[in-house]
Every structure is written in structure tokens, then in C-alpha cells.
């Protein structure tokens, strides 16, 4: 009897094993604003196609194995001619055609002395996995700018996130 129970018990334990959590960074994502840009509330947009494709391939697992995704840090870097002095504050959201927009981070005020800055990440995060499984993830940065620009502007962000998955 024991020889039947033992393998079943081992199988049960294996299937209940807690998910593995791994830290992953996005590539440098470019956010763009089309000029002319006027002082006040503006929006920079960037697209990340198939965000998890490379990671899933490297792990050789199906997307169904992913249990959760949590954003843990967001680094923002304005590109010249936009500088930290021109930025008052920034709010960052993610959206996709098949998922609702989620606010993930902000910084208020934007520090006047640092080029790049770490945004404050939201404690409550919902549907992030749904967004990351979309074929096209859109990054929406709402920025308050304190002067006018004639030209297009760009910035870079890097998202760092934790993926919980069943190995």
C-alpha cells in the first residue's frame, strides 16, 4: 500500500511547490512626445512589443506558468534637449488593447539635480500580468513640463519587475 501512497504524496508535494520569483529588467524603452510641445501637462508614449517573449523562450516555459508580475522599480531618463530642470512631475501608466490602464509609478516633484530618477512605484498593482501578456504594451508617461519646445522630445525608461512562475 505504502508503495502507492508514497509516489502520490511526492507528486502532490511537487504540484503544490511554491512559485519561483525572478527579477527581470525591460530593455531601454524609448518614450516620445511629438512637438511642438507647450508648457503644462503633456504625454510621452512608448511601445514594448511582446514583453515576455524572450524571457519565456529563455526559460522554455508556457505563459500559463506565470502566476504574477509586480513592478518593483522604474528608472526614467530624459534625453537632451529635455532636462531634469524642465520637468515638474511625472506619472507613469501601462496600457494595452486587451487590458485596462494601470498607474504604476510617479515622481513629484522631479529632482532638479539628477538626470535620471527612480520613480515611486505603486503599492497596489492590479492586472499587471494581463498587460505583460499583451502583444503590445504601451507605456504612457504624463509629464508636466515648465517650458515650450518646438521639436520632438524623447526619454528612456527601464522597468524592473518580479515574475512569479511555476517551474
Amino acid at each position: 500500500m505504502l508503495k502507492y501512497i508514497l509516489p502520490i504524496f511526492v507528486l502532490f508535494l511537487f504540484s503544490c511547490s511554491s512559485p519561483v520569483v525572478e527579477k527581470v529588467s525591460s530593455p531601454e524603452l524609448v518614450l516620445e512626445m511629438e512637438g511642438p510641445i507647450y508648457e503644462g501637462a503633456n504625454t510621452a508614449l512608448g511601445v514594448w512589443k511582446n514583453p515576455l517573449e524572450a524571457w519565456l523562450k529563455s526559460k522554455n516555459i508556457d505563459k500559463e506558468k506565470i502566476k504574477n508580475i509586480k513592478i518593483i522599480s522604474v528608472k526614467f531618463q530624459p534625453n537632451s534637449p529635455l532636462s531634469e530642470k524642465d520637468l515638474q512631475e511625472i506619472t507613469l501608466q501601462l496600457t494595452a488593447k486587451s487590458a485596462d490602464m494601470q498607474k504604476i509609478a510617479f515622481l513629484n516633484p522631479y529632482p532638479a539635480k539628477s538626470g535620471s530618477a527612480d520613480l515611486k512605484v505603486a503599492e497596489e498593482q492590479n492586472h499587471i500580468l494581463e498587460l505583460f501578456l499583451s502583444p503590445e504594451l504601451t507605456v504612457v508617461a504624463d509629464v508636466n513640463i515648465n517650458k515650450d519646445f518646438e521639436e520632438n522630445l524623447s526619454s528612456k525608461i527601464i522597468l524592473e519587475f518580479e515574475i512569479s512562475y511555476q517551474p
Partner: peptide
């Protein structure tokens, strides 16, 4: 003005100017 009534404590300092109130 800030989003001081946001139920998420960590988001109460998000400025109202530029705030997305209509979504999706």
C-alpha cells in the same frame, strides 16, 4: 493639488494636473 483621496496610500502625492480621470 494632489490626489489626496486616492485609496492607495502610495499614490496620494500624484498631482491632479495631468491626472487621467477617464480610462479605457
Amino acid at each position: 493639488k494632489l490626489d489626496k483621496n486616492n485609496p492607495d496610500e502610495s499614490m496620494k502625492k500624484v498631482p491632479l494636473k495631468g491626472y487621467r480621470i477617464l480610462k479605457d
